[in-house]
Simulated assay, not measured.
Amino acid sequence: MTDTQNYRTVSYSQTTLTELMIPSYANFGGKIHGGILLSLMDKVAYACSAKHAGNYCVTVTVEGVHFLQPVEVGELVSLKASINYVGNTSLMVGIRVIAENVKTGKIKHTNTSYFTMVAKGDDDKPAQVPGLTLETREDARRFLEAIRRRELSQRYQTELANSKTRLSVETELHKLQDYRCQIAF
């Protein structure tokens, strides 16, 4: 197998951040600003990744931010983070966000997101992170899904980069006829 000194378990760095949603976090519609939730997600991603890495970590990408249900003032929001994948210097943190109405006890899942973080050493250069010990079949499933997510992201970035160099407005303009836009040139 592998040298366990250079590995940490998923449970070692699992982190939960819980915060009361106060009126100053609300938008004009009375719901909690998405930016407040994104900031909390970034905090919990940092805490989880830094604990695993044993180093300062920075956010590189944020994927899968879909606000499934609104969060209300007065609810307790809990952000549950765990390491789903590690590379050489990068970590993918899965975050599940739930909101709880403390009066009724109703709990709702509001968001699941994935933050890719990179560990930084004292020299501010990327630093190697410990490997990940998968303790359960669920840990293995999440690691495998993260590999797939990375592959799809890399494929998308490659296709997007190639299409930028080959895209011709003149040859592609006809595709806009089925969309809600008008051409003014």
Rank of each mutant, 00 (worst) to 15 (best):
Tyr56Lys: 15
Asn88Ser: 02
Met92Pro: 00
Gly131His: 02
Lys80Pro: 01
Leu144Ile: 07
Ser113Met: 09
Val71Arg: 13
Tyr156Ser: 14
Ile107Phe: 08
Val58Leu: 11
Thr116Arg: 15
Glu100Thr: 07
Ser153Ile: 09
Phe115Gln: 06
Thr89Ser: 00
Val60Arg: 13
Ser90Gln: 00
Asn101Ala: 08
Thr158Leu: 09
Val58Asn: 11
Ala45Pro: 12
Val93Tyr: 10
Arg150Cys: 10
Ala47Met: 15
Lys120Ile: 08
Thr112Pro: 02
Gly64Asp: 09
Ala127Val: 08
Lys106Thr: 04
Tyr56Ile: 05
Phe115Pro: 03
Thr112Asn: 04
Gly87Val: 04
Glu145Lys: 15
Arg142Cys: 02
Ser153Asp: 12
His109Cys: 01
Pro126Leu: 14
Tyr114Trp: 13
Ala81His: 11
Ser82Glu: 08
Thr110Asn: 09
Gly87Gln: 03
Ala53Lys: 13
Arg137Trp: 00
Cys48Lys: 03
Leu152Asp: 12
Arg96Lys: 15
Arg142Asp: 00
Asn88Lys: 10
Pro70Asp: 14
Gln69Pro: 00
Gly121Lys: 07
Asn101Glu: 11
Ala81Tyr: 08
Ala81Gln: 09
Leu68Asn: 08
Asp139His: 13
Lys125Asp: 08
Pro70Asn: 15
Ser113Cys: 13
Val97Pro: 04
Cys48Ile: 05
Glu135His: 04
Arg142Ala: 02
Asn84Trp: 07
Met117Gln: 12
Asn55Arg: 15
Arg137Tyr: 00
Ala47Lys: 11
Asn111Arg: 10
Arg96Ala: 14
Gly121Pro: 01
Arg148Asp: 08
Lys103Pro: 01
Cys57Tyr: 03
Ala47Pro: 13
Pro126Glu: 07
Lys80Ile: 04
Tyr85Asp: 01
Arg149Asn: 08
Tyr85Arg: 13
Lys120Val: 04
Leu160Gln: 06
Ala47Cys: 14
Lys51Ile: 02
Ile147Leu: 13
Arg148Pro: 01
Thr59Leu: 06
Gly64Val: 10
Gly105Leu: 09
Met117Glu: 03
Glu151Ser: 08
Thr61Gln: 14
Ser82Gln: 12
Val102Ile: 12
Glu75Tyr: 03
Thr136Arg: 00
Ser153Gln: 11
Val86Thr: 14
Gly64Lys: 12
Glu151Asp: 13
Gly121Cys: 11
Lys108Pro: 00
Pro130Trp: 06
His66Ser: 05
Ile147Ala: 07
Arg150Ile: 14
Asn88Ile: 01
Val93Asn: 05
Leu160Asn: 06
Thr61Cys: 11
Val60His: 09
Tyr156Pro: 02
